[in-house]
Design a protein around this nucleic acid. Structure first.
Length: 678
DNA sequence: TACATACAC
DNA sequence: AATGGTGTATGTA
């Protein structure tokens, strides 16, 4: 659906990718592991050699075969997209160029250069902590983790190509001298708390991204003390070193997205300041490889490069017409804002977790008794975790990873909320039963749809609908009248008490899952220890496309094969976008009205006249609802092609609602605020 | 609602 | 021998 103006595709589209010939001689070149992407400390690594070793060690394994399968799939998508790209007419391109230019102007208008953000990132954190407690490790290549999986590696080890997320047995092949140290989550938490005390001096509301990194808004400190951000960064890093003996790196920039990129530039033990100046930002971003941007991963990189030839952020703008033609608005916005060097500058709202889960890997088995035992253990672990946080939920999801690394999820939504291990197990069993017989190497259980999802009032169905609509794809905001109060709890708590109550969710911070988690199946003790902060990362609450940019990729990936089957879609399709918007605003006035200039005539929600934006959103909602109803009735009687066209329009509209909704973040009162009992 | 995918750490 | 765990977001049917 994203790919507008597409032509019929045929499945044998990869002709153009064939005939390279190099693959036969050097097969490892086609095995795209993530291990070779430039990471701090790995610039001098012989990547060809690393790639070869990784390939040799992996070749033929079940894991490898699955990776090949996934890669082939993505390759196919890329081929399909290239064809669609080639089929765009001049007319199409001219249209999308207009759309793109308009979006870029709008995005540019949203640029905020008034804040100074600092991103701190500890250097090889777990490895550094382990070296502190065992100084004989100093100077030797060392990694934290096990033979199966590494959490992190120190800089000596990185010289050999050893890095986080690499299996230990491959790392040992790359570096036979490599010393393995098991993870000790307690230790990392302790040092993490020490660093956070320092962060708190500069921004009491700092955002902890994980145990080893944080974002600080240092605008005020800089102003109050009348010092340059550069000096603050120096001072902060010195303070961290003083308190912990650990080094860190910092990036300073006008927004969080850029600050994060900057903290990586002079790693380890360095810093980089990008001034709050538009030209400086544009220059910085122009040559920046897109993969450096948080949110652009391996797949997105491949697609953007393979289909559009995009390597740098600047090229996001050069190819903006293609981006607007092929991706959803939110994704296109994100990509364009990357090209402009835009990112979030607000201090995000507090959010609640939306799900909780437990999963374990073991040696693959189809022994049903064994699987059942694993399931039972998981149910108990999960239940214990839920009880710790006072959670209960009504959707249970079973996750299975087959012996061939294929992942399946199966879910049920129940009438009542559950949290006991018995309830969880009872339903989990049924889900598992339906999949038997099967050989699996991982089982996971997840519970979502929490009872305490405070923002969805259950009593009034109307309200529920609206709230769900509004919050879906957005954030469950803290419904407390004084969300700020919670924000400070963590800091003071951290100073007095090592154990952090997970419900004091003021500070945003999911624990670093990767490092903490590599446990043997039975290590429940440390498992419990690991479960710490129930607090949450940043991003989503805001508008800037940063929050919601994954969608488009999923869309492109998911829709291509579908499009391949659809009859040629009108190439003029794109102009519907504009027409829809006109229709939108013209309907807005007629769909509903405000009784006594206060109450919605359709659903009764109260919104004072001063809440102009919120009212607009609200009428948008009703419009979307109306269109959806129309669409579903049309859907029943109309011919497929018509129905497709309609559907497109509606979907695009509701999407644009969400988009608009999140756009004004920052200064506005969330609309769901009005639905919450106080 | 159910499921798959991408991503971060 | 051997490639993790927790959580978020999104689209589509």
């Amino acid at each position: 659906m994203i790919v507008k103006g597409a032509r019929v595709l045929d499945g044998s589209a990869n002709a153009m990718m064939k005939g390279k010939g190099t693959e036969d001689d050097r097969p490892w070149q086609s095995y795209h592991t993530v291990y070779t992407t430039a990471k701090a400390g790995m610039e001098l690594v012989d990547k060809e050699k690393v790639q070869r070793v990784v390939y040799e060690m992996s070749k033929g394994s079940k894991y490898f075969q699955n990776e090949e399968r996934k890669e082939a799939f993505i390759k196919q998508k890329i081929d399909n997209l290239r064809i669609q790209c080639a089929n765009l007419t001049q007319e199409d391109l001219a249209h999308y160029q207009k759309v793109a230019d308009r979006r870029i102007v709008e995005l540019e208008a949203s640029r905020d250069l008034s804040r100074i953000w600092l991103h701190v990132d500890m250097d090889a954190f777990y490895a550094a902590v382990e070296t502190l407690s065992n100084p004989t490790l100093k100077g030797k290549p060392m990694a934290v983790g096990s033979m199966s999986m590494l959490s992190t590696a120190n800089y000596e080890a990185r010289k050999f190509g050893v890095r986080a997320a690499m299996p230990g047995f491959i790392a040992r092949k790359l570096c036979p001298e490599l010393i393995f140290v098991p993870t000790d989550f307690k230790k990392y938490t302790y040092y993490s708390d020490l660093t956070r005390k320092v962060f708190g001096r500069y921004d009491p509301n700092f955002i902890a991204g994980s145990l080893d990194e944080a974002y600080l808004d240092i605008t005020e400190v800089c102003r109050e003390r009348n010092v340059k951000s550069e000096e603050i960064a120096q001072e902060l890093r010195a303070g961290v070193y003083e308190e912990t003996g650990l080094t860190c790196s910092a990036g300073v920039a006008p927004n969080r997205l850029l600050a994060k990129v900057c903290s990586d530039i002079n790693k380890p033990n360095g810093q980089y300041v990008l001034p709050n100046d538009r030209m400086a930002v544009m220059t910085f971003v122009s040559s920046l490889p897109i993969r450096k941007i948080g949110g652009i991963g391996k797949v997105t990189e491949h697609i953007l490069k393979g289909v559009f030839g995009i390597n740098t952020c600047e090229q996001m703008l050069e190819k903006s017409s293609y981006i607007c033609a092929f991706f959803s608005q939110s994704t296109a916005d994100f990509f364009c804002s990357v090209g402009l060097g835009l990112g979030q500058t607000d201090s995000p709202q507090v959010r609640f977790r939306k799900s909780i889960s437990s999963e374990r890997t073991f040696s693959a088995t189809k022994d049903e008794v064994l699987l059942h035992k694993k399931l039972e253990e998981l149910a108990e672990m999960l239940s214990a975790d839920m009880q710790k946080e006072g959670l209960s939920g009504r959707t249970l999801t079973l996750k299975l990873k087959t012996a061939s690394f294929e992942v399946r999820t199966r879910a049920v939504t129940l009438q009542k909320y559950i949290s006991s291990s018995e309830d969880i197990l009872k339903h989990a069993k049924k889900l598992l039963q339906a999949e038997l017989p099967i050989s699996v190497r991982l089982i996971g259980l997840r519970v979502s749809q929490f009872n305490g999802d405070k923002c969805s009032a259950k009593s009034d169905p109307t309200q529920k609908t609206i709230t769900n609509f509004i919050t879906s794809g957005d954030v469950n905001r803290n419904c407390s009248s004084f969300p700020d109060v919670a924000d400070h709890d963590f800091v003071s708590n951290a100073e007095t008490d090592m154990s952090i109550d997970s419900r004091q969710t003021g500070q945003l911070d999911w624990r670093d899952p990767f490092d903490g988690n590599y446990l043997s199946d039975v290590d429940y003790q440390s498992c419990t220890v690991q479960k710490s902060d129930g607090v949450e990362e940043v991003q989503t609450s805001s508008n800037d496309a940063t929050s919601s940019h994954y969608s488009g990729l999923t869309e492109v990936l998911g829709s291509t094969s579908y499009l391949g089957q659809v009859e040629g879609i009108n190439v003029k399709n794109g102009s519907n976008l504009l027409e829809d918007e006109r229709l939108d605003s013209c309907c807005q006035e007629k769909t509903m009205l405000w009784l006594n200039d206060y109450k919605c005539s359709l659903c009764g929600i109260e919104l004072p006249p001063s809440f102009v934006e919120e009212r607009l959103e609200h009428s948008d909602f009703h419009l979307a609802e109306k269109l959806q109803k129309e669409e579903s009735s049309i859907h029943q009687k109309s011919v497929p092609s018509q129905s497709k066209g309609q559907k497109d329009g509606v979907t695009r509209q509701s999407k644009s609602k969400k988009q608009k909704l999140s756009q004004k973040e920052g200064s506005y009162t969330p609309i769901d605020y009005f639905f919450v009992k106080k």
